[in-house]
Amino acid sequence: MSSFEGVDVISISDFSKEDVMKVLKTAKGMVPVSAGKKSDRSLEGKILSALFFEPSTRTRLSFESAMKRLGGDVLGFAQPEGTSLMKGETLADTIRMVDAYSDVIVIRHPHEGAARLAADFASKPVINAGDGAGQHPTQTLLDLFTIWEGLGKLDGVSIALVGDLKYGRTVHSLTTALTMFRTNLNFVAPPSLQMPRELIDQVKEKGMPLKMTHDIRDVINDVDVLYVTRIQKERFPDPQEYAKVAGTYRIDLALLREAKKNLMIMHPLPRVDEIAPEVDETPYAKYFQQALNGVSVRMALLSLILGGSK
């Protein structure tokens, strides 16, 4: 996309490397505004519709904060209860209506492909804030922003994705995005939760270095970024098996003794016990910063899409 004005943001695959960099650079300029240290009213008079058909704390609040920091307004709902959806209205009809009320639509929905469908029926730009197990492109962009901000680059960075790589949508989108850059990827997961074949092929096709292992100690002294995800209990029929697997992917100070000095630990949150609380106080812990970055990145997108930034 040569210009972002009016475009839909449905999947990270719709972005080129240049598009990603444009968002990241714009987001960097937004940091003081997102922190309330600088004022920007460039989206004054614009309205964002936040349609959250599924609950979300971080994503919804950071979109609201982003829009309001830029002087815009927000309307919408945080769960489908009480909306016409509960009366059996189709998503297509809801979108046709909301399209007339606002300038940009942000949607989170339990069904995969919902954002693409919304974009088909809306004349205004649609931003996907997560569709079922599908895409969540703004999460991917804030992940990239966090790495880029923290290390000053994306090319040449060595990243380990850890945990449930089979079902985790954030690691799938992040992998797709990282293939745009010359990164060294490490997939660390128990064999039953390894990255889907399709994504492994995607990395191999690009000729990128890839290491796959079930043991985090194989990569801990070698990587710049540990991107940790939650291993969900419900993926295991046997609770004992879960406890065994989950325990081996716990990041604690003992494990970090072997880590590089400038290692960044990231996590899309919420975490359960894959990162020990003792890690929170170390300089490695970047997961709260990562969540905060969501506001700057979403400001950048809103600003580019609604014409506040060129």
């Binding site: 189709t90 339990p110 197990a133």
Partner: peptide, 13 residues
């Protein structure tokens, strides 16, 4: 084939 795909809900697409 994905039962959770939006095209398998009652949408006019």
């Amino acid at each position: 084939a994905n039962p959770n795909c939006i095209t398998n809900q009652k949408e006019p697409v």
